[in-house]
Simulated scan of single mutants.
Amino acid sequence: MLNLSSFGAFHTLIALVAVACGIVALVRHGTLGTRTGSGLAYVLLTVATSVTGLFIFRHGGFGPPHALAIMTLVALAIGFGAERRAGRSGPAAYVAALAYLITLFFHLIPGLTETGTRLPLGSPAFTGPEDPMLKLCVGIGFAVYLVGAAWQVARLRHARQTPLGAPIS
Results as ranks from 00 to 15, higher is better:
141 G>T: 03
76 L>I: 15
28 R>A: 09
25 A>S: 15
110 P>K: 08
135 K>C: 04
150 A>N: 03
69 A>M: 00
155 R>Y: 06
70 I>E: 01
5 S>M: 04
69 A>Q: 02
151 W>K: 12
143 A>I: 09
45 L>R: 09
165 G>T: 03
29 H>D: 10
28 R>V: 03
49 T>H: 07
78 I>P: 00
152 Q>L: 11
96 A>W: 09
104 L>P: 06
102 I>M: 06
19 V>A: 15
96 A>M: 12
137 C>K: 09
59 H>S: 15
27 V>I: 15
87 G>K: 12
148 G>N: 06
144 V>I: 15
27 V>G: 01
98 L>M: 11
131 D>C: 10
159 A>I: 08
81 G>Y: 02
17 V>D: 09
85 R>V: 00
71 M>W: 00
73 L>N: 10
100 Y>P: 04
4 L>W: 13
82 A>L: 05
146 L>M: 10
94 Y>S: 03
1 M>H: 10
151 W>H: 08
133 M>T: 04
10 F>M: 12
160 R>Y: 01
157 R>K: 15
138 V>I: 15
168 I>P: 10
149 A>K: 11
38 S>R: 03
3 N>E: 07
19 V>Q: 11
46 T>P: 06
64 P>M: 14
108 L>C: 07
142 F>C: 09
97 A>W: 02
123 S>W: 03
23 I>K: 02
13 L>Q: 06
104 L>V: 06
99 A>L: 06
16 L>K: 04
74 V>S: 03
19 V>H: 11
23 I>C: 07
22 G>P: 10
37 G>R: 15
68 L>G: 08
144 V>H: 00
157 R>S: 10
162 T>W: 03
77 A>P: 08
21 C>M: 15
52 T>L: 01
154 A>V: 03
115 T>A: 08
17 V>W: 12
169 S>N: 07
52 T>C: 07
74 V>C: 08
60 G>H: 07
164 L>Q: 12
69 A>T: 00
72 T>P: 02
166 A>Y: 12
167 P>K: 04
59 H>A: 15
119 L>P: 02
130 E>R: 14
51 V>A: 03
28 R>L: 13
87 G>P: 10
4 L>V: 07
34 T>S: 13
110 P>F: 01
7 F>V: 10
55 F>W: 12
56 I>W: 11
66 H>Q: 14
120 P>Y: 05
111 G>H: 08
120 P>F: 08
75 A>C: 13
150 A>W: 07
63 G>R: 13
14 I>N: 04
64 P>F: 13
31 T>C: 01
113 T>Y: 09
167 P>W: 02
99 A>D: 07
162 T>S: 13
67 A>P: 04
155 R>M: 04
60 G>D: 11
12 T>P: 04
102 I>Q: 10
23 I>N: 02
101 L>F: 13
101 L>G: 02
157 R>F: 01
74 V>A: 10
26 L>C: 05
127 T>E: 12
167 P>G: 05
127 T>D: 09
128 G>Q: 06
45 L>M: 09
2 L>E: 05
145 Y>E: 00
39 G>A: 06
